[in-house]
Nucleic acid binder design. Structure first.
Lengths: 121, 121
DNA sequence: CTGTATCCAAATGGATACTG
DNA sequence: CAGTATCCATTTGGATACAG
């Protein structure tokens, strides 16, 4: 019987939380493109050519609901909408960067034997 | 061939690589449970009660194919199979920990106003 | 330009039964 | 114990058309 002091493995893994927030196929990529500056809907479409309008809109709405991105509507003609990382979304930057660093290393070494890949870390 | 200095955002985002490797619904959780020690199939089943045999086996095979976990068969009766983080899989630990730290903070603050949540980082 | 709606295809996940 | 196989439900993603 447990007295108190749950281990991290015993309570609900917080990694699941991150996976849920970044779970969509394009969400990390969207956030990645918002790192440097706010972007319009059509700009994101050009930056991520493989994504469909539907999925881009859907993921943006989810990211907005999760308070990770902000949506600013400029009441002009034609309509202009800008998406940006919220202050809260910016706290995710270290996560994105850590993932990015690992992914870069993986991609760079993926054509080599794994035994070599892990050696000099 | 590194004549042109592409920015990170211009080449294929390495974050996608990580998402692909951790993409399955249970993969991060499996890795999380392998952090401290190797586990048997049935142990993982008990640690992750919500996962089905099928998905556990499937994700373990994918993680094995990606060289993130090792599979050791002990030719005993009854059969015993142990799964463990590979050396390469261990390089993923900082990624898991960064995600975990963000997730913990998010979970802890999710019932508070976001404005409060981001303040003292 | 910035979306929504609809229909459809593919991927993912789950329940159950069966095997070495 | 440690799986595989099969069938089915749910989820996700995409193509196209349409609207404010």
């Amino acid at each position: 019987m447990e007295t108190n002091a749950e281990t991290a493995a015993e309570r609900k893994c917080p990694i699941e939380t991150v996976i849920q927030l970044l779970g969509g196929k394009w969400k990390p990529l969207i956030l990645w493109h918002l790192l440097d500056a706010a972007k319009r809907f059509s700009e994101l479409e050009k930056l991520i050519p493989e994504v469909t309008q539907k999925m881009l809109a859907q993921h943006l709405r989810e990211l907005e609901a999760d308070k990770l991105v902000t949506r600013t509507i400029y009441p002009s003609v034609p309509p202009k909408v800008e998406y940006a990382l919220s202050d809260y979304g910016k706290t995710m930057v270290p996560v994105l960067e850590t993932m990015c660093a690992w992914g870069e290393n993986h991609n760079r070494l993926s054509s080599r034997p794994i035994a070599q890949a892990i050696a000099p870390v």
